[in-house]
Design a protein around this nucleic acid. Structure first.
Lengths: 115, 115
DNA sequence: CCTTTAGTTGAATACTCGTTCAACTATTTT
DNA sequence: AAAATAGTTGAACGAGTATTCAACTAAAGG
């Protein structure tokens, strides 16, 4: 057994089943990274407003009552992780959700929480 | 407009649509709270092993290679938020996922990340 | 009754991370 | 060319939180 902890294995069979099926660390990493991205008040609201309408940074800042800087920092994170994409037009940068997948996950979760 | 930030509203229509549709704060709170719970390496692994098999604290600790204490702290959180439930049998406490809903969300997310 | 073991818990430490602040770039307007 | 505005960025501060540690409870066994 490659794992070590501060107590004995009580139910060999249960532990074996779980350890055998355990995905590799990278799988969990991706999963957790995605959850962390949407587990933040500002980012989840940004995703919500972008789901309603394409927006520039100032639009989002106004919608959320926050500064351009705070929004821009979070948009950078969302973009780096491919949840949003951007296009520049003159002085403005327009942001949109990157694909329907994000929209789906988001809307499903939202309708679920509302119950 | 009740919101205030450090820049002017550029696209009135877009902002109005988003603000009008914005769910109340409590809705976001519930959503984020749920995402935060599953956005942690230890907790997501606990949910995974419990999805495979009912387990006591030592089984989980062994499966994850962590201490009983660390696991117990996280189990408390998961239980307080109704993601897992427990039953005591002698000295041992067995934990299981609380309902199919957790299982569903978890398995869907997992299969998605694997692609 | 004493010892051992499963599990819990509160405090403290260590780390992560969101926002603020100030400075900066780029584009438009006068 | 200068001023104004949209947006970005790095550093620093502060809040939240996961694990460790030590002490504790509860149940089982000799």
């Amino acid at each position: 057994m490659e794992y070590q902890c501060d107590c004995n294995i009580i139910h060999q069979d249960a532990v074996k089943i779980a350890v055998d099926k355990m995905p590799e660390e990278g799988t969990f990493d991706k999963l957790i990274n995605f959850y962390k991205l949407i587990a933040d008040s500002t980012r989840v609201k940004i995703l919500f407003v972008l789901d309603q309408h394409e927006m520039c940074v100032c639009d989002i800042a106004n919608s959320l009552g926050m500064t351009k800087s705070a929004i821009s920092h979070q948009l950078k994170l969302l973009k780096e992780n491919n949840l949003v994409k951007s296009k520049k037009e003159g002085k403005e940068v327009f942001y949109t959700l990157n694909d329907e997948h994000v929209t789906q996950v988001f809307e499903i979760s939202l309708s679920h929480v509302k119950e």
